[in-house]
Write a protein that binds this DNA or RNA. Structure first.
Lengths: 124, 124
DNA sequence: TTATTAATGCAATTAAGTTGCAATAATACG
DNA sequence: CGTATTATTGCAACTTAATTGCATTAATAA
């Protein structure tokens, strides 16, 4: 199952790199308008995730956002920071701010996900 | 538009009170099995929200969970705590643990939502 | 006891994402 | 370079969670 280098894949990768933030399928679809099918975008993004070059996070708007893995170790994506979703430009970014908490006694942690919405510097 | 006291409404309210945690429509539907329509459950729950007796929160599984308002002031629901969703019993509960963070300069806060998944004391 | 209209049930729709399948096109190999 | 292999694509159809339209039912005010 060797991956192939297709125009769709290249274009989506470029968008992710240029954005320097997490993008939703919806957003990418808007950017590539008509160049490729809706489903292709989903499939390319999910393949990126399988390959560990991106990860997807479910935002507090119920949609998935895809971002390039930078500080993610293989199959252990770093998510212990807050995610910010701008209601203006709709960009999603990772904040420096770490998420910290202590679980009640006897609880076992599996995952955590913290979202902040508002307006980013340029949109405020 | 005066509200009426229907069996559906009563039953759902009792479930919410008994649960002492946030419930999804799915969960409520399972509990009332066949007594009322799926859509009715959604409508009752959403009316509760309109009336300020419950609030709904979108969990990190993409589903809405409804909980009675206790420490919520009118139209200003208190959410500055972590929410815990148990992967075993599927219960959602509010933790004591407060969510704290400082936004980068120039950012404006609108809302925040923090979720932790794992196994609660009885399921661990 | 009846009239008003909120609430319900059922079918259909929306939104985000996934799946099946035949057609297309990267790429490995002779 | 030409061909075979099979990953990738596009289109239609499906899934899941939730909402909407509309005719019918049933709280409740009179």
């Amino acid at each position: 199952m060797n991956r192939r280098n297709t125009p769709a894949k290249k274009m989506i990768m470029e968008l992710l790199q240029a954005a320097n933030s997490a993008l939703s399928q919806e957003r990418i679809e808007a950017e590539v308008k008509g160049v490729m099918d809706r489903v292709t975008i989903y499939r390319v993004l999910n393949r990126f995730c399988e390959d560990g070059v991106t990860h997807k996070i479910l935002a507090d708007d119920g949609k998935f956002y895809f971002a390039l893995c930078h500080s993610c170790e293989e199959h252990n994506h770093a998510h212990d920071h807050f995610h910010f979703r701008c209601l203006g430009c709709e960009k999603v970014e990772c904040l420096q701010e770490q998420v910290t908490f202590t679980l009640p006694d006897g609880y076992r942690l599996q995952n955590s996900s913290s979202w902040i919405t508002g307006y980013c510097k340029s949109c405020a």
